[in-house]
Amino acid sequence: MTSCHIAEEHIQKVAIFGGTHGNELTGVFLVKHWLENGAEIQRTGLEVKPFITNPRAVKKCTRYIDCDLNRIFDLENLGKKMSEDLPYEVRRAQEINHLFGPKDSEDSYDIIFDLHNTTSNMGCTLILEDSRNNFLIQMFHYIKTSLAPLPCYVYLIEHPSLKYATTRSIAKYPVGIEVGPQPQGVLRADILDQMRKMIKHALDFIHHFNEGKEFPPCAIEVYKIIEKVDYPRDENGEIAAIIHPNLQDQDWKPLHPGDPMFLTLDGKTIPLGGDCTVYPVFVNEAAYYEKKEAFAKTTKLTLNAKSIRCCLH
């Protein structure tokens, strides 16, 4: 018999989150649709729960009410004593943790798909938090293969000092899905179709896995975050240069030392320094102006996964 890495157990509980950011409308629209008619997301033997994560922000069509829901799922915020004085999103995070967690427990949901849009030209993107997770690498390989020839990129946010504390991190297997470009507060049919297909293929993978299909060893190309880059700023902290036209919409493309990065209003080009080629992502993302992030630098690498098969009882 072929030796293989056996994944822990079959997958039982899956959640699909929309509206973690209330103005990213593809996930909101799909989740609302699936709450009314969820036939397309159901798979035999699998509990799939669509869920609106930040209903107040969705109602106002804004990213958040008090603070970013997708950055506060750490033990400090989840452990705060519940009171009306807490920011709305912290209270909501505790409610979500109660419903789908608790985080880092045996009772937490197996998989959470968190649906997002970006204003950046990132196409279909899967966000991975753990480079050693054979199950998710296999799932992402399946999704990428199923979507081809449509490109699907994998963004690895594993980093020693950049801690995200994402909404989906309460699950055993957290999956971020990011599709763009799409303006905030807008629905685009092409973007919706791409996100819908990503979810379909992900659920198909889980179904095949649960039925005992063995997935042979595989490898995927990923883009691992190195650092986030702020806009150049003046002495008052105001933005002093904008994304250069040569960099705009060039997510995932190589940016070499000396290539144009920013452009000042008086026409001066600010190039990339250093001696390493990087791959920019979230270029000129609207939501990241407040976070002082013009783009993120990534490096390209390959992740390998062992063969996996479900432990059938």
Rank of each mutant, 00 (worst) to 15 (best):
F205T: 03
Y142F: 07
N70V: 07
E106Y: 11
F262Y: 01
P151M: 06
Y155I: 15
D275P: 08
G273C: 09
S146V: 07
E76F: 11
I170M: 12
L265H: 13
L263M: 11
E106P: 14
A39P: 06
R233G: 00
C311K: 15
K81F: 14
D204P: 05
P216Y: 00
A15N: 06
L78E: 11
K144S: 09
D275Y: 07
S161T: 13
Q184T: 12
G273T: 13
T119S: 10
F209D: 05
T125W: 02
G79D: 13
D230L: 11
F73Y: 10
G258I: 05
H201L: 09
M198R: 05
C276L: 14
L46Q: 04
S108I: 09
Q42W: 09
E293M: 15
T145W: 06
Q250D: 01
R63Q: 11
F17N: 00
V179P: 04
F51G: 04
E227M: 00
D74A: 12
P217Y: 03
T145Y: 07
E89G: 04
M261H: 01
V186F: 05
E227T: 05
K80P: 14
E214G: 06
V14H: 05
N210C: 05
Q94V: 12
L115C: 08
I111N: 06
E238I: 05
A305M: 05
K253T: 07
N284K: 02
L75E: 14
G258D: 10
A15Q: 05
I16S: 02
N37G: 06
N304F: 14
D259Y: 00
E36P: 00
C218D: 05
D249I: 04
F17S: 00
S131A: 13
E36S: 10
G123P: 03
T166Y: 10
V283W: 05
H21E: 05
L272I: 07
V31A: 15
A241C: 07
D104P: 10
I16C: 02
I111K: 04
S146K: 15
L69W: 07
S83D: 13
V31T: 14
S108G: 13
M82F: 14
N236G: 08
D85Y: 12
P151L: 00
L25T: 15
S3M: 11
K291C: 09
G212Y: 00
C61T: 12
L115M: 09
I111R: 03
G185S: 07
P232Y: 01
G274Y: 00
V281R: 03
P160T: 12
R56M: 13
V186T: 14
P245W: 02
L255D: 05
P280H: 06
T2A: 12
G176D: 01
G274D: 08
H141L: 02
A296Q: 12
Q250S: 11
H208N: 12
A15F: 06
Y223Q: 04
H313N: 15
L156I: 05
K60S: 13
E129P: 14
T298N: 03
V283G: 03
D193N: 12
R43F: 01
P55N: 10
G79T: 14
H116Q: 08
L78W: 11
I308L: 15
N77D: 11
Y231C: 00
E76R: 12
W252E: 04
H98V: 13
C4R: 14
P271V: 11
G212T: 02
D66I: 01
T166E: 11
G176Y: 10
V222N: 06
I52C: 08
S120K: 05
I96M: 10
P55D: 13
E235G: 10
A287V: 10
K228N: 10
T277M: 08
H116Y: 10
L203F: 06
A240K: 12
L35A: 11
S105G: 14
E238W: 00
R92P: 06
I177F: 11
L136H: 02
L136G: 02
I143D: 00
I270M: 08
H256F: 08
L303D: 03
T302P: 02
N23G: 06
T125Y: 01
E238F: 06
L303Q: 02
Q250W: 04
P183M: 03
S105T: 13
Y231V: 00
I52Y: 00
G274F: 03
W34I: 03
E40C: 02
E95T: 12
W34Y: 08
L25G: 14
K200V: 10
R91W: 09
I96S: 06
V229Q: 10
F17P: 02
Y155S: 07
I226N: 08
A93C: 11
N304H: 14
T2I: 06
K306P: 14
V48K: 03
D190P: 03
E84C: 13
D234H: 08
D193E: 13
G19L: 00
I226D: 08
C124M: 13
N121D: 00
T118S: 12
A286N: 07
H207A: 14
I239H: 00
G273P: 09
M198I: 15
Q182F: 03
D249T: 04
T269R: 00
T302F: 09
T302S: 08
L99I: 14
T118F: 02
D190R: 04
L150I: 14
D110V: 04
T20S: 10
K13H: 06
F17C: 10
G101L: 05
L128C: 00
G258S: 09
I96P: 06
V179L: 07
G274C: 00
S131Y: 07
L162P: 15
S3P: 15
L136E: 01
I41D: 02
L25R: 15
C311I: 12
S161H: 13
S146Q: 15
K172Q: 07
K60Y: 11
Q194A: 12
A202F: 03
M195F: 05
I239W: 01
T62R: 13
A148M: 11
Q250E: 08
H244Q: 06
T26C: 09
P216L: 06
A202T: 00
Y64V: 07
K291N: 11
L203N: 02
P151C: 04
I308K: 02
L30I: 01
L312N: 15
P181W: 05
G212N: 00
F135A: 05
P102H: 09
P260Y: 00
M195G: 07
P149G: 01
T277C: 08
Q94D: 10
A287M: 11
K163H: 12
D66Y: 06
N70T: 08
L265S: 09
Y164D: 15
V14E: 03
A148C: 08
V48M: 01
L46I: 12
K81Q: 13
N246K: 12
V175N: 00
P102L: 10
L25P: 15
L192E: 05
D251I: 00
L263N: 00
H10W: 07
V186A: 11
I11R: 01
